[in-house]
């Protein structure tokens, strides 16, 4: 996937982005970080073609992405499930746009729920589930649609710390376990610890209008330990970019 020369302004004329360029190699977990209000979620919506850029383009397999597509699937910050559907029906929703037979769809939904660790909870309604379980349902729904790109907008923001940590530990394996068709995950987050824990590549968004001010490749082996000094070093570098501490960056 590639993002080339993206410019975007709000309806009121406020220029949000200028010349945003991203190169996303297959198999990478990519994060976008930046100060609050810089436009991280907006950039994610431009990549998913939920918004149209003023200038520039988003390319998937060399072809421009002009409208939302199941190939690029969004997991929202506010955990979105449909309260009138069970967990399985929620997942089936992403399969109903395709012409599967019913049994095949049921199997696909069940295996997506298995993948996120919700086997045995297929018939529960969202209100009978915890926040973490609901977010797993939302992820299963996205994965069942067999996307190439998964967009995650602060996916752990509304979970308590313990639940978020549990899901973070699972998420990389869920997403890149070989059963899924995913090529990339693009996550927006303001939580630098989770960014370092999960990402292969981090793009830093800053300035006004926002541009990409840096790219960091995180090469630490997985699972990543928070107490590892290298983990702290990456955190410092990211923190330096966001607070513009030149000394840290030079170091």
């Amino acid at each position: 996937m590639e993002v080339v020369g993206l410019d975007f302004s709000y309806d009121n004329g406020y220029k949000v982005f200028q010349d945003i360029n991203l190169t996303i190699e297959p198999g990478k977990f990519v994060s976008i970080v930046g100060p609050s209000g810089v436009g991280k979620s907006t950039l994610l919506r431009l990549i998913g073609a939920f918004l149209s850029p003023e200038k520039g383009k988003v390319l998937l397999h060399g072809k421009p992405v002009l409208r939302p597509t199941p190939l690029i699937s969004m997991v929202h910050q506010s955990i979105v499930t449909f309260p009138w559907m069970t967990a399985k029906e929620n997942v089936l929703l992403s399969l109903k746009t395709r012409t599967f037979d019913r049994d095949k769809m049921e199997d696909a939904a069940s295996s997506a729920l298995d993948m996120v660790g919700l086997q045995g909870f297929e018939d529960l309604y969202p209100k009978e589930m915890s926040g973490g379980m609901r977010q797993r349902v939302a992820i299963a729904r996205s994965l069942a649609g067999e996307p190439n790109i998964l967009l995650m907008d602060e996916p752990f923001a509304h979970l308590d710390e313990l639940t978020a940590e549990g899901l973070r530990q699972d998420i990389y394996n869920i997403l890149f376990n070989g059963d899924a068709t995913l090529e990339n995950v693009i996550m927006v987050s303001h939580n630098l610890t989770e960014v370092v824990e999960l990402s292969d590549v981090v793009y830093i968004l800053n300035n006004n209008p926002a541009t990409i001010v840096g790219r960091i490749d995180i090469t630490m082996p997985r699972p990543r330990i928070h107490r590892d000094p290298e983990f702290d070093r990456y955190l410092d570098v990211l923190y330096g970019y966001l607070t513009k501490k030149k000394g840290v960056l030079n170091e």
């Binding site: 939920f50 939302p68 199941p70 979105v80 746009t97």
Partner: peptide
Amino acid sequence: EYNEIMRNMDMSFFKKLRYVILPS
């Protein structure tokens, strides 16, 4: 977010109505 999911899944008008808009 429901609107984004419907667009994301490229749902037809009737599927949108049946599964999301009318229940919602």
